[in-house]
Nucleic acid binder design. Structure first.
Lengths: 132, 132
DNA sequence: TAAAAATACTCCATAGGTATTTTAT
DNA sequence: ATAAAATACCTATGGAGTATTTTTA
């Protein structure tokens, strides 16, 4: 089964076109990396690299996959950070302006109900002067 | 290290809010799934589920992560399919219309040069009548 | 007490390492 | 001759299974 690991490894190889150097950067041994790339190509059923001797180049499909794989890794990271932000209550930081007259009556009650429904939304209050 | 597997498992649990049923759907045993979910929460540093007894519910962060995780899995699949389409020469399917006069002289030569530069682009030719 | 999640342990599949060979500069 | 990728083989981590024990509805 293909995992994110395969994408991480592929992106590194695709960028320096040199398995041994990529392996160093990834802190793994060269054969392990070679194996992962082969497995990736096998499961995709797609040749990602042209091997002309020791000269690696991306195939057309490899080029496409590089872009998509990077996007996938970014979305993966984004998912993690989003969850972490949400856990810190930054789901939606809501800035709320009010006039002092309204603030004394409407705001506290409404706010209380809102916060019981959305306990993780941080509400920031700003008292404001009337505009007209 | 978090892998795609964790997202796949999480999404399943998040959707039916029932570890045992989710495990069946994923064709793995319940303890294995529990372990994966715990590991996910551990590495994220985020509680994704409220456990009130046996009643599972998504936390706010879990809700956010569900959306993002699904997007990530979609992008992951998309990357694979894009590479496979590219490998089949569907990088850009180029439909080209021409008049018969042009077709006899310009098109073959231009086409030959184009295809040697972009061998993976499928060119579809359509002979067309003049418009005016 | 019935059903679901958590623990304890066991096993084995496989990710990754080391050593070596092949291949192409 | 050198450097890089492929191959062969081995090791060990950890993913997943079975059995069992809490839990709480």
């Amino acid at each position: 089964m293909l995992e994110n690991r395969h994408l991480r490894y592929f992106v590194e190889v695709a960028k320096c076109l040199h398995v041994t150097k990529a392996a160093e950067r990834l802190h793994i041994a060269q054969p392990a990396l070679t194996q992962n790339i082969h497995q990736l190509e096998e499961e995709l059923g797609v040749e990602l690299f042209h091997r002309e001797g020791h000269r690696l180049t991306l195939t057309q499909a490899g080029q496409v996959f590089l872009n998509e794989a990077e996007a996938s890794l970014l979305q993966f990271d984004h998912a993690q950070r989003a969850a972490q932000r949400a856990a810190r209550g930054e789901v939606g930081k809501l800035a709320l302006g009010f006039q002092s007259m309204a603030g004394l009556s409407v705001v506290p009650h409404t706010l209380q109900r809102f916060q019981s429904s959305y306990p993780d939304v941080q509400v920031v209050l700003h008292e404001m002067a009337p505009q007209c």
